[in-house]
Amino acid sequence: MDPYYLALTTVTLAAIYGLLALGISIIWSSLGMINLAQGFTFAVSGYGAWLVAQYLSNNGVAVVAGGVLTGALTGALIGGIAFIPLYDKPNFPLRSLIATLGISLFGGQCLLWIFGPRVKALPKIFGYGNIHIGPAVASYDKIGSIVCSAILLLLTLGWMKSSRRGLEIRAMMQNPEGAALVGVGLRSTAMAVMMVTGAMAGLASVLLSQTYFISPFAGVTPLVKGMVVALAGGLGSVAGALIAAVLIGFIEAITAVSLGGQYVLITQFLFIIAILLVRPRGIAGMIEHTRE
């Protein structure tokens, strides 16, 4: 087996899973909400990008922007429905979890109703062709995916690390009451978080749609994978999510090469169950102080 191919696939998958998992992880730790509607955001963004490609422009940047923007708006919508009315109510974690599930059922059916069951395909935004890096051969697709996700991931992490908004989100991840005491508004911060994570899901959607089709329920598998990565990394940990994304991406790549594509989920699940049995809070759940 070709080690370069393996490494490249691993990095591509890790980049996309990282986008999804980081979204789930950040939402959990800053808002205390498990967002199972992330899959819905994923699907909607695919359609958003498709609409842009269909009616506005086939330009790669426009398509990506369409997906990211739709993702951010959908994220805000989910936040408005599942977080804002519920966050100070009793039994919030369970109820918001159910609410996001409800949104994903509602939204999936709406998409099916509006766009019909036929799948859609996005234009190849990175073009066709291969690039040779030393001994390795990489398609434009993969390189484009890696570069785009890396840019967004780095931007997000840098933004969270150094900006005023980022500090506010990090503060809220640690202690919501303390955050309120320094003047951080819970609601506006929550909406910012939802929009950023939605944008991440939107980008992941556009990138994955280079390989797969867009359909009303296309979000389920990415959601599950993102969740698995977030769980394995330890909910709420940024570093853990990134490490787990690389590990899970590697397992997917090596399983697909050596055993066959249908065993990917099984090996991934065995891996994550093994991790969780050893470390119930995930890889990094113990390293960082996360939300109680």
């Binding site: 498990i34 199972l36 769980l231 909910l235």
Partner: peptide
Amino acid sequence: RLEGFYYALLTVGIAEL
């Protein structure tokens, strides 16, 4: 070993598997 939401998420994944 798992508690609450970790388990809920895992079971969603198992169903998908």
